[in-house]
Amino acid sequence: MTKPIIEVKNLAKDFDGNAVLKDITEQVDPGQVIVVIGPSGSGKSTFLRCLNLLETPTSGQVAFDGQDLTTLDTKRVNELREQMGMVFQGFNLFPNMSVLENIKLAPMKVKGTSDADATKRAHELLQQVNLDDHADAFPSSLSGGQKQRVAIARALAMDPKVMLFDEPTSALDPEMVGEVLNVMKDLANQGMTMVVVTHEMGFAKSVADRIWFMADGYIQENSTPDDFFAHPQTERAQDFLSKILM
């Protein structure tokens, strides 16, 4: 049996007494694609942000590659964080840098990669997301779909072991959703371990290995897409699906 790459034990998080995550214990195996779905405000983003410690858990453990992140000092957290790429709903590209510079920044400043090597790798990644002709453009001149693909390339530039996606297509015009999902599908096919929060049920059905359904601060269901969409177990999930699948 392979060792899980992410292990979450009894994770809880509250904001000033408002318990958002109550008690979550799950694990992600290398190469798995997990799709997290659930109603708005159920704590999906908070959960994802706890995985790379952008949010500090109130209690419980988050282990990455066998290391409990919650016990590490800042320096080690930074080191492990670079192995988890994250893609945000709002892209969060650095507007003061060109596309190429956005991608090169972290490899050069964190890993100390040479400019030449970082540039070469950036161009490869841009080809992978079909944007190599925009290398010198600034983010403001790109469409939403293009921005998100750059953001994915930027996260991949650190050669992460896991990619976290927080509603990567929610802020996009419908005609651009496809191009981003295609890039993500390619990634999944290449064996990337991914945790994806999304409302794209088509993507969930076709790409996910497991669906985690989250509500009221718990992962209510953890099942295959086929099981989840055909036979949701909990009333919460049935309710949720009936609303979105209408």
Binding site: E79, R81, Q83, L93, L105
Partner: peptide
Amino acid sequence: VDDGQTEAARSLGLTN
């Protein structure tokens, strides 16, 4: 400056 900028940078492993 948008908080998202800091989060993106931190998620890439950049130090404070």
